[in-house]
């Protein structure tokens, strides 16, 4: 499956990834609308984003969440009732919601953030099993 990978040692917390993500999906720069969040301190940063583990799929009452052919967990907006079950039940708290949006959102491994990362701290990789969270 295709997933995002993160190297904390390279990250300089410039937040280019957050900006690129929210701008791509919501046409605005707002870290609260980014599907990747850089946390921690500048000395010890960490990234929070979906590792495509898929646990949310079984929690969804409307079968709106599914794994696509590339192995990425995606949301069918037309089936979602905005109940936020997946938000509460994401093991890593990386299914996000925002008051402006009627449905939750998560990393879909599109690679925009990796392309924008000036330090190459983020990259897209093909894996057999989900990577440990945050890596």
């Amino acid at each position: 499956m295709r997933v995002l990978s993160y190297d904390a040692e390279r990250c300089v917390v410039c937040r280019s990834c957050e900006e690129a993500c929210s701008n791509t999906f919501f046409r605005e720069v707002d870290a609260e609308k980014s599907k990747i969040r850089i946390r921690g301190s500048e000395d010890a940063p960490r990234a929070e984003f979906c590792n495509q583990c898929g646990e949310c799929i079984d929690v969804c009452p409307t079968v709106a969440l599914y794994r696509d052919k590339r192995g990425v967990v995606r949301l069918r907006r037309e089936l979602c009732v905005g109940c936020l079950s997946c938000v509460g039940f994401c093991p890593y708290a990386v299914m996000f919601w925002h008051a402006d949006e009627s449905v939750p959102f998560k990393c879909v491994a599109c690679g925009v953030c990796a392309r924008e990362c000036p330090e190459e701290a983020l990259e897209m990789v093909e894996v057999e099993e989900p990577l440990p969270f945050g890596q």
């Binding site: 109940c83 936020l84 938000v87 509460g88 039940f89 708290a93 919601w97």
Partner: peptide, 8 residues
């Protein structure tokens, strides 16, 4: 709501 989901 999301807080209670988390609690459960």
């Amino acid at each position: 709501g999301s807080k209670l989901h988390r609690e459960i």
